[in-house]
Amino acid sequence: MNNPDRVNLNEAQSISAEQPPKSEYLKSIILKADNITLKYGRHEVLTDASFTVEAGDYIGIVGPNGSGKTSLMKAMLGLITPTGGQFSYAGEVRDNRFIGYLPQKVISGDPLFPAKVREVIAMGLLSSKRFPKHLSQEDYKKVDGILSRLKIGNLAEKKIGNLSGGQQQRVLLARALVSSPRLLILDEPTSALDPKVRENFYGILKELNEQDGVTILLVSHDIGSIGQYTKKMLYLDRTVVFFGTYGDFCHSQDMTHYFGPLSQHKFCWQHDDLPETASAKPTFHFHAPHIHVDHVHAHGQSIDHSHESDEGFLEESNDELQRVGAKEPSARKTESSDKEARP
């Protein structure tokens, strides 16, 4: 796809690459992906993906199911090797130990696993240790510190398998954060969370990004709501469809063509410069926040079979919107069942 945004980006990239790497004035590039191609067997899941991550970025990696976003993330972590192209890490994340990772699946699927929350979180400190690895009192102080920061100090001595999905997710976030990483990679972190916990979770991430300057890459299929939290969007569909800020996204003609004006507007969350025509449909803004998150969530999933016709997608979006709006009580019901802790 010939996308002006991408061309611009590539130019910007080559310019900043010529700068000295530790320039204080420019935002320093910490991760650069050059023409990444990923394959599973013969099946190519991602082709020629290029983008750069700067220190302090908060990027939402979005796309339909099977668009290659999880594969891309695994490749960034070194779990799979690209068949083409390469990643270059620089500055504060040249080493794996400066990267925190929150996997999608909550716990290894084994509720019997005998691990206390403290033990699990302490695992996050291991990558910075050398043989023979030993966890000192100081390390456990760090663990307790991150526990209280995420307000889950009461879980410290609990068995991880006995916690609810939301609690487990926060424990794994604590594990990712305990080593004070400079880059945090999260894979669908909110898919198991109910809306209230989800808001809280995004609140924590925002604080990390803005106050601690942690660079965050967040993989999500929830394209509809991710725009209200992240600063940049990397939209994948087997290749990079869009990469840039939400402002750019909103004003890109290509994206209007790709998603249709309504979805484009909805995804970029730039409500301030809302055109007159759009404000005639107040449904977007005046929904209760949790319902809003929910309905868009459903959209993200519906994207993958609605690409061919943008108009079809548009109609579908509207339908969905009304349906969800009407079914508020049932939506609440599923939330509360999510919240229940496992026995």
């Binding site: 972590l77 070194g78 779990l79 080493d95 794996n96 130990r97 990267i99 990772y101 996997p103 290894s108 696993f113 691990a115 033990e119 699990v120 302490a122 695992m123 996050g124 291991l126 990558s127 240790k129 043989f131 023979p132 690895k133 030993h134 966890l135």
Partner: peptide, 22 residues
């Protein structure tokens, strides 16, 4: 005893262990 923490991490979640460079 020497490799306790590593073995624990690898047993708990092999993918995570690999991701953090083990």
């Amino acid at each position: 005893m020497f490799f306790y923490h590593d073995l624990f991490a690898v047993t708990f979640d092999e993918e995570y262990a690999q991701a953090v460079g083990m």
